[in-house]
Simulated scan of single mutants.
Amino acid sequence: MASDSSKTECKQDAGIFAPVIDRTRCEAKEDCVGACPYDVFEVHKLGDEDKRALPLMARMKAWVHGNRQAFAVRADQCHACGLCVIACPEHAIKLMRVTTAA
């Protein structure tokens, strides 16, 4: 987890933006885990459904990396500081505004 001083860099209240991980790019290097001051990310094995949803080349890439990827398990805690986006060497993370259904 990043230092508490990183929290001062965050721009939004929690829940306005959420990280979205591109499953075709993530290689589970865990840089996002260490960069996030709010402990939003975890890296763990892909479930069978997650693997089936990947295109063939992405499934092969996931296999090479132990079928592990990052997950935004506490996305509702994201404060949109962008440190995860900067830290990700695969450019697999984007911050998206959370929309609520009316």
Results as ranks from 00 to 15, higher is better:
31 D>E: 12
38 Y>F: 13
19 P>D: 04
102 A>C: 05
31 D>N: 14
56 L>A: 12
5 S>H: 07
15 G>Y: 06
37 P>W: 01
19 P>A: 06
8 T>Y: 03
66 G>P: 07
63 W>A: 12
41 F>L: 04
90 E>R: 10
43 V>M: 03
33 V>R: 04
93 I>T: 07
39 D>W: 06
74 R>K: 15
40 V>N: 01
83 L>F: 15
94 K>D: 11
79 H>T: 14
13 D>T: 12
35 A>D: 02
94 K>V: 14
72 A>Y: 03
91 H>A: 12
47 G>W: 02
10 C>H: 04
39 D>G: 12
99 T>L: 04
4 D>I: 14
89 P>E: 09
85 V>Y: 08
6 S>V: 15
20 V>Q: 08
95 L>A: 06
15 G>A: 08
27 E>D: 14
38 Y>N: 07
40 V>G: 00
15 G>I: 13
88 C>N: 02
3 S>Q: 10
66 G>A: 09
51 K>E: 09
53 A>H: 08
66 G>K: 12
98 V>G: 01
27 E>G: 08
78 C>L: 15
21 I>C: 00
58 A>K: 11
41 F>A: 00
49 E>W: 06
43 V>R: 03
50 D>Y: 11
80 A>S: 12
38 Y>R: 06
34 G>S: 08
101 A>H: 06
88 C>A: 07
32 C>I: 09
5 S>P: 00
71 F>G: 01
2 A>L: 10
86 I>W: 06
24 T>P: 02
91 H>W: 11
59 R>G: 02
95 L>H: 06
83 L>D: 09
18 A>Y: 09
13 D>I: 09
3 S>K: 13
60 M>Y: 13
72 A>I: 10
56 L>F: 10
67 N>S: 12
3 S>F: 07
89 P>I: 13
21 I>H: 01
20 V>M: 06
42 E>I: 12
79 H>W: 15
34 G>P: 02
43 V>Q: 01
61 K>C: 03
80 A>K: 08
81 C>K: 08
85 V>D: 03
41 F>S: 01
24 T>F: 03
101 A>F: 05
77 Q>H: 13
89 P>Y: 12
77 Q>N: 14
25 R>F: 11
32 C>Q: 03
59 R>F: 04
75 A>V: 10
8 T>P: 00
51 K>V: 15
52 R>D: 15
49 E>I: 11
80 A>R: 07
46 L>E: 05
84 C>W: 06
45 K>N: 03
47 G>T: 15
28 A>H: 05
15 G>F: 07
50 D>W: 11
83 L>H: 13
71 F>H: 05
36 C>E: 00
79 H>Q: 14
66 G>S: 10
15 G>D: 02
90 E>M: 13
28 A>W: 04
57 M>C: 05
25 R>M: 12
96 M>C: 07
96 M>H: 09
85 V>F: 11
79 H>G: 00
14 A>C: 07
26 C>L: 05
101 A>N: 05
94 K>G: 00
91 H>C: 09
91 H>T: 15
29 K>F: 14
55 P>D: 11
18 A>D: 03
3 S>L: 10
28 A>I: 13
94 K>R: 14
